[in-house]
Write a protein that binds this DNA or RNA. Sequence first.
DNA 1: TAAAACCGGACTAAAATAGTACGGATTAGT
DNA 2: ACTAATCCGTACTATTTTAGTCCGGTTTTA
Lengths: 163, 163
Amino acid sequence: MLRISKMTDYATLILAELRDSSTLASASELAGRTGLGLATVSKVLKTLARADLVTAQRGSNGGYQLTTSADTISAAAIIDAIEGPVAITECATDDIACELESTCNLGGAWQKINTAIRAALTDVSLEDLCTGTNIPDTFPLLPLAAIKPGVRNASALRRASKL
Amino acid sequence: MLRISKMTDYATLILAELRDSSTLASASELAGRTGLGLATVSKVLKTLARADLVTAQRGSNGGYQLTTSADTISAAAIIDAIEGPVAITECATDDIACELESTCNLGGAWQKINTAIRAALTDVSLEDLCTGTNIPDTFPLLPLAAIKPGVRNASALRRASKL
DNA sequence: TAAAACCGGACTAAAATAGTACGGATTAGT
DNA sequence: ACTAATCCGTACTATTTTAGTCCGGTTTTA
């Protein structure tokens, strides 16, 4: 559920390498360091460059570097760059009202959740991802938890424990 | 990014209808009420029944009803039921270590984030989804926010505002 | 016994994702 | 100027996932 694509995963790996590198790193260099295919690394880097997360230098001795420091690049930005600004539900994707709207009695609840998750991901930086800091094992969503003590059913617990 | 499948969306719609119904509701009844195809509704209901979120009554006059009350069914449980216990990254899916592990210097950061999101979704109930209550517009992730004041880059902000 | 309903699984079609390939443009060094 | 290294853009293919449909079987009620 709620998975990020492999490409986004790769992007994180690559960005992490760039973070460790003080100079320009070429696509083939990064391919070597990450163990991924050159073509794939190239593709990811091009996408990241278009999103302005990395800056490219062309020509011989060219390569890539982070546009800004690792603590100013958010997890949300990485996901956005690779996967585009896709929303959690179909009908949240664009401003066209979904055809089921009349029978849909869910007043955009999923969209709200989506926004909330995005906010959470915006507060996690590449630096955090690399160092593993600032990412708590559980995200106590205070306002929610305070209002209703987390009610969980058996199957949810069972699955959660396996995760 | 991070989208739930259409089927999960449908499941929520169907569960919401079941919540409003005091008696058994058949698949065709629910298809009518939601505006979805019968075959699709059937499929979703069967899956939900297997996950024990709804209880089926077979035979003539049969149908479905919620197994427990709407406030004991979590959003996480619904997603799990339809999409299975899939994790946010490939290598988190099973306990087999991913082949990139040696070069992967991301110590399961995505997995942590996944767990955190799951925790958040476990605290949102079907009842919440239906009524729209208890779902704040933003989820202030207190422990995170307290430690580092949300650093966002321009492109993240731009995209977020379009969402 | 017949009709209504769920059950399980197979099946197809469509869409998204992953990965590859290639000709073109840019730059540095010689 | 020439050449090699490198990024750029895009098109392409293959694979996987998702969505949606169908059907034969079982259960229950009347």
